[in-house]
Nucleic acid binder design. Structure first.
Lengths: 339, 339
DNA sequence: CACGGGCACTTACCCGGTTCAGTAACTCCG
DNA sequence: CGGAGTTACTGAACCGGGTAAGTGCCCGTG
């Protein structure tokens, strides 16, 4: 067997036609007789021909690849199931359309933007996803300037001129606070994520407004880096504070689990003494005791929608944003009326 | 500003030389005077030129990309921090060498092999990683046949003719069992992962052999799908069995946490009534009460070594395998002498 | 039976960067 | 001062596909 991958020239030689005829035949374009087309396809199949993606990218100016750079420290990435689930959802849509995902883990947003410059300049990708949007976020303007198709995974208010795919955190928070208020809670605190992230700020504001509306106390919000350690620390502080909250909402599940452990360790009964809600549901929420009441959403579907939107942008030059379903509150054993 | 990305022809025109001179200048190859080289580089910098990766791949027959396809169901992926940490480690090495990572989540190994066929046939990747090796695993032979550089993330015994990068699970298990034996445990069970995975089998065998050596009881091993649910279920069964184990080793941390919850729910005191050990450490192990004794390893470093090995294979055609450090036992509050 | 038109296929050239084989001009040396 | 060797650079071809613009050939038709 020859050591080189077969090309259309090889097929053309075998079929006794020009390589143009082969190209037409394989791309199902008119200009070849059915008989020739069939024989060309048979030969292609037989020698295991695949179109060289580089050659194709060169003429079509399409890479059939989209990029995702994540700017979180490595230790943070393992922690949250969110990204893996998002990626698997993105993938399922991409692979169905023969598109690949280029992934890069970087340490900061500046480096991420530089990555996008490189990818775009090198023609490696047709578009990118932007996650973990900050406010303000230099990536937004940077990517917009490049004219590269991009989908922001986050609220429109933070997406600038780019196309957003988002879910309504405010509605989810309203459900949760309404539920907690109905149970009789008045002091609902929140252990939030990184304060520089746009969605953290949006949640902060929504919580203040909705709390006021519902007649709850002004909420105490503690910002963390999403790690279990900081979640535990924040919980300890909240429990020890003068106006101890009767319910706490955590911006991810690892912090909620950490909070649960801390509360139990400090002799509190969950949910009688303290109710806990985890934002984003995972197996973790279900395996601890009591199981955690959680804000559940279909993250793979979220990724799928983002991918679909990005592919539409690449194909048509633009695409409408997409609002995904809001997270759904799943009450479990960690919430109850306060004592 | 022109709508097209600048090419070396643009630079050549501006510099008043041929595009060949530009190519030589930009690649630091002899054949251009220092003055010309400098001016060409300045122009390239000024107009923001980047080499088109497709064009480059076409001539050099190098994609500067390696692939990783993961064949686990989506819901499984989010659960384990392992892959995200591995990927971030792989990335850090790749990006330092200007290489990209193509990621694909597929549903089964057959599809994964098909993916590798496609990638290789299309010239999209220079090599791939193989994770979650089964025994037997059709991917091993399939990839070997293609002649595609590949690194197996797993034990040499399962890697066939491919190059392995692995860590010694047997040594880690020996440390753990020796430690538990020293504490006085005799019935040490294990809640293991998928039985079809080669490393699960290796651990199973090692556990039997080492247990016998140390004079422990023949170990009970329950296989699961790595999910918290099955971990909880397995733990319930073990606790309810006639010969209840006094210590349990879990093949991942989510199952260990699930097991901890189940044990506590069933009224057992951890560690007095039941000692627990988690294989692979994460934040999770530290935030629960008691914190879990864990087999800790530097997973990003593992990924880095795998990437380094693969890049060496791509460059030189072959590379020696690499044995990474074995997991280190980190004793925490979940292990103690049996009552 | 000449002519328009469609079919099946080819020739020629492009994409963007690399490589090989020149070719002038300039330097060195006997 | 002629020939060898070096330097700085260029033209043409190539990688593996794609597209635009032909070119014969057969067919139907007025």
């Amino acid at each position: 067997m020859s050591k080189h991958r077969p090309t259309i020239a090889d097929i053309a030689r075998r079929a006794g036609v020009s390589k143009v005829a082969v190209s037409y035949a394989l791309n199902d374009r008119p200009g070849v007789s059915p008989a020739t087309r069939a024989s060309i396809k048979a030969i292609a199949e037989e020698i295991g021909w695949r179109p060289n993606s580089a050659a194709r990218a060169l003429t079509r100016a399409r890479a059939d690849t989209v990029g995702l750079a994540l700017s979180r420290p490595a230790r943070m990435l393992g922690v949250e199931p969110f990204f893996m689930e998002l990626i698997s959802g993105i993938e399922s849509e991409l692979s169905a359309r023969g598109c690949a995902l280029l992934l890069q883990v970087v340490t900061d947003p500046a480096q991420e933007l530089e990555m996008y410059h490189r990818w775009w300049g090198e023609g490696r990708v047709d578009g990118v996803f932007l996650a973990d949007v900050r406010s303000p976020d230099p990536r937004i303007e940077g990517v917009a300037e490049l004219g590269m198709p991009a989908v922001v995974i986050g609220h429109p208010s933070a997406a600038g001129s780019l196309t957003p795919v988002w879910s309504d955190d405010s509605a989810a928070l309203r459900d949760t606070l309404t539920y907690l208020a109905a149970l009789g809670h008045r002091r609902v605190a929140r252990v939030a994520g990184l304060p520089e992230l746009a969605h953290t700020r949006l949640r902060d504001r929504a919580q203040r407004e909705i709390s006021a509306e519902l007649g709850l106390d002004e909420p105490v919000v503690v910002h963390t880096d999403y790690s279990g350690e900081e979640g535990a620390h924040a919980t300890r502080r909240l429990i020890s504070s003068a106006a101890r909250p009767t319910a706490v909402i955590y911006d991810n599940d690892i912090m909620a689990v950490a909070g649960l452990s801390v509360a139990q360790e400090m002799g509190l009964d969950v949910p009688a003494d303290l109710s806990l809600v985890a934002w984003d549901d995972s197996q973790l929420s279900r395996v601890v005791r009591p199981p955690l009441t959680a804000l559940s959403r279909d993250i793979p579907a979220y990724g799928t929608h983002a991918a679909r939107t990005l592919l539409a942008m690449v194909a048509d030059g633009s695409a409408p944003g997409f609002e995904d379903a809001a997270a759904r509150l799943v009450p479990r054993g960690s919430t109850a009326p306060p004592r």
